[in-house]
Amino acid sequence: METVLLYLGYFFVSLGAAFLFLGAFGIFRMPDFYTRLQAGTKSSTLGAMSLILGVGLMQPEWFFKTVIIIIFIAISNPISSHALARGAYKTHQKPLTDTIDAYEEVTEENKNKNEEE
């Protein structure tokens, strides 16, 4: 049983390290802010979750605490990047796009409303 858990732990830890690397590499390679945020959030969230789960499996006494940290990361990471995206749009960081930018009209409307008041 213990060796099974150990090898499962090895598997999850390697998977986690690989995804952490992919996340950072995505941040390095992508062409604009929003696409960087996409790559960064998804890969680093799953990478950290999987690495921490691997440690929890290899060291069963720590399991519950690692689960708490996994839940915290799963909730906090999307929220912080969502806040960042909104903040960046307000500083006139336009997304790189050939097709559609539906959010633009909302910020324009808000600006006009503020000026009227």
Binding site: R29, M30, P31, D32, Y34, T35, P95, L96, T97, D98, T99, I100, D101, A102, Y103, E104
Partner: peptide, 8 residues
Amino acid sequence: LPINPGIV
């Protein structure tokens, strides 16, 4: 980099 980004 096969991407075609936009906001919907």
